[in-house]
Design a protein around this nucleic acid. Sequence first.
DNA 1: CAGATATTTAGGAACGTTCCCATTCTGTTA
DNA 2: TAACAGAATGGGAACGTTCCTAAATATCTG
Lengths: 332, 332
Amino acid sequence: MPNIKDIAKAANTSKSTVSRYLNGYTVKPATAKAIAKAIEELGYHPNANAKGLVLNKTNIIGIVLDNITNNFYAGMLAGIESITRKFNYSCVYYSCLSSQKKENEFLNLIYEGRVDGLILGTFSVRNIEDVKELRELKDSVVIIGDNADNKDITSIDIDNEEGIAEMVCYLYSLGHRRIAYLSGPKDINAAIAREKGYIQGLMKCGILYDPNLVIKSDWTFEGGYDAVKKVLGKIDFTAIVGSNDYSAYGALRSIQDAGLNVPGDVSVTGFDDIDIAAFSQPPMTTIRQPFFDVGRRAAMELLDKIDNKAQCYSRIILKPTMIERESCRAII
Amino acid sequence: MPNIKDIAKAANTSKSTVSRYLNGYTVKPATAKAIAKAIEELGYHPNANAKGLVLNKTNIIGIVLDNITNNFYAGMLAGIESITRKFNYSCVYYSCLSSQKKENEFLNLIYEGRVDGLILGTFSVRNIEDVKELRELKDSVVIIGDNADNKDITSIDIDNEEGIAEMVCYLYSLGHRRIAYLSGPKDINAAIAREKGYIQGLMKCGILYDPNLVIKSDWTFEGGYDAVKKVLGKIDFTAIVGSNDYSAYGALRSIQDAGLNVPGDVSVTGFDDIDIAAFSQPPMTTIRQPFFDVGRRAAMELLDKIDNKAQCYSRIILKPTMIERESCRAII
DNA sequence: CAGATATTTAGGAACGTTCCCATTCTGTTA
DNA sequence: TAACAGAATGGGAACGTTCCTAAATATCTG
């Protein structure tokens, strides 16, 4: 593989001049032409490691996701790259799931000079040990997800609480009074926030909180299915607020399998607006998270830290949107 | 950030010795201890760019996908990383979709020394120009998908043709004789192969090919829905072989919306075995692609090229598996 | 056309590693 | 204790860039 010296020789000039040409500084037109020709003919590609070594800069940001093949993240990635593209950065992705590594193991990428910064996009809870490591790198890291406890690390999150609360109030406005809640995993911050939102919503509407109406589940289809199957007919409700779409669909199928109708007998709502939500039978009323914006903002904050050495902390919370479809009906 | 010289100084030795320690060569126990202490105290991390520069090696392979958030790829990635982990390589992912770049633009990553090799996992058709570029890098690239025309670039693919043919024969064995085919996009190799498989299957069973039974569609839910809606009642069939799951689900919903029953009135089959296939109503009979193995084999081939400088070309075709569920019934 | 100024260029240090080669240290044996 | 072998170490070139400084060349001005 030819290097910059080979190009210089071929173009009858020096490596400094070639370097200047490559980096957009002025070079005499004739020299420029010769260099361009040499590059073309020899098939020259600048070595990224050498460049990274001397500049201590890669123009790459890494994005760590628990499972990169989760369609859930598509909008977020598009949002991130819409910004990085503009500022001439590249994105590389790392998957905790398939690599069997945890999020923090990727922090080394910064120390090693492989990336200029990292977006930690797993939405996961962070323990004290993890946060200690993070804090050391707070000028090159942005967190997506709940970070309320660590005021000095920039984070972007969605207002999960508000989303669910709004959904509860919506069902209230349709006349529902016995509104059940299908809970999520208790070790995920977003799930905790959503459950808070349920209680918040009830309070807003003046409904008394009944712990029996909280149906314990996880965020899977099967989990939702089984959980609802267990309580159907035993506890009385006219609506179920799901804490995500998958489990809401499990609930829906459970209800249908019991010979009941959605929304005729029970109204069901979800959270996430997954791609099939618009096409299911019935189409699901759910909450759409502003993923594109989450990604955009995360990238903006990160590049700002990297390029402008912005040292200031920010915590950005974006509001989700309710999408009204046909899985709920008014009670007269 | 401390470098190897700082560690040497702190440990009262030379950078050569520290380097030797880091790379697992013998060092006097006392020296080793001092070095370890210095590394710990100063928080040393070897610089990847310097290392990459001198070794001309990164121990990283890149994986290019059209859309990394496609769950379709999950098994493949797990398969890839199961191998790379074993051989001490890391994986980084690149997404054509969100970066708005095409597959070939990522080839530069090799020239620039950012990765040791690339798995091109987009399953896409390649034109002559693209293949020319690829051929130059054939010792550092493995293609996933159809590559029958380029015998000198290693590729891994799934036997799409055989899969569909088997499905046709399965329906034949259930007594079906008027078997329709819901086609896919005509510019994707896998879709072309599947359509060939349909004809192949008919031939095997001794059914005459009737072009009217090929329902033109794409691989989307809506596409399948509309295409089947258009022909329902106009052409006569007892089964539809879908060329992927999404469109098969579109067909299924179309049939149900027309007041017909699946599998009572029409049998429907899919291809891909997406995650909801087991939970839908009815559960979908479909074809599962051996994604984990595709990933495994791709990684094995690539690392073999990189580390052992294996120059030999191979084209590996893996067989898919039919998963029998409840969307088909026997005609007596 | 000489001198002054502006533009363009070449040389070389630096970035942080690895690894070759020469040197020093350690321990054994006669 | 001298001689030696083997283990452990240190020095320095090399990797391919960037960028500073100084030199060379081109352009302008009176």
